[in-house]
């Protein structure tokens, strides 16, 4: 359908555009090792840490589902909703190593009835929206078992 279009990141620098190993790109404080997503570059936000060296790191690709919901109605702009709109699920996924929860859309075709807290989820790249020339890509979560 959209094979001729160029695939571009919907937002620059937030994730790795590698379909074989897509990763969210965060930063990590080199002093206290805390992680940030989206990237913090100014200084560590742990108030007990005076670290200022923040290094870009790929975050874990897999995590456990913390909670989930869906959008049964099209969200307002600046979201670009497909017409006709298809409801989609949204997942909050807990990354064990980073000890943080990250939101993402769930890939199309996965209904909330197929989700449960604790199941393993994996990051993939998918289309957020398209225009005449480009396919704008975003990270999404997909159940590992699916």
């Amino acid at each position: 359908m959209s094979g001729a279009k160029a695939q571009v990141a919907a937002i620059e620098g937030w994730f790795r555009m590698d379909p074989d190993d897509p990763r969210l790109l965060g930063t990590q404080c080199q002093a206290c090792h805390t992680y940030f997503f989206p990237k913090e570059t100014l200084a560590c936000r742990n108030p007990s840490c005076d670290g200022t060296e923040l290094k870009e790191v790929p975050l874990s690709r897999r995590g456990r589902l913390w909670s989930f919901t869906n959008n049964c109605y099209p969200p307002p702009a600046p979201f670009v909703a497909a017409d006709p709109f298809e409801p989609y699920a949204v997942a909050a996924v807990e990354l064990e190593e980073e000890k943080m929860v990250v939101l993402g859309q769930v890939v199309a075709g996965v209904d909330v009835t197929e989700l449960a807290a604790g199941i393993e989820m994996e990051l993939v790249l998918d289309t957020l929206f398209e225009d005449d020339d480009n396919e704008f890509m975003i990270w999404k979560w997909r159940p590992v078992a699916a």
């Binding site: 805390t34 997503f37 007990s48 000890k99 943080m100 929860v101």
Partner: peptide, 11 residues
């Protein structure tokens, strides 16, 4: 309006 929580790794 956050995309992620804080990380509990550092503290």
């Amino acid at each position: 309006p956050n995309f992620a929580t804080d990380s509990a790794v550092g503290v």
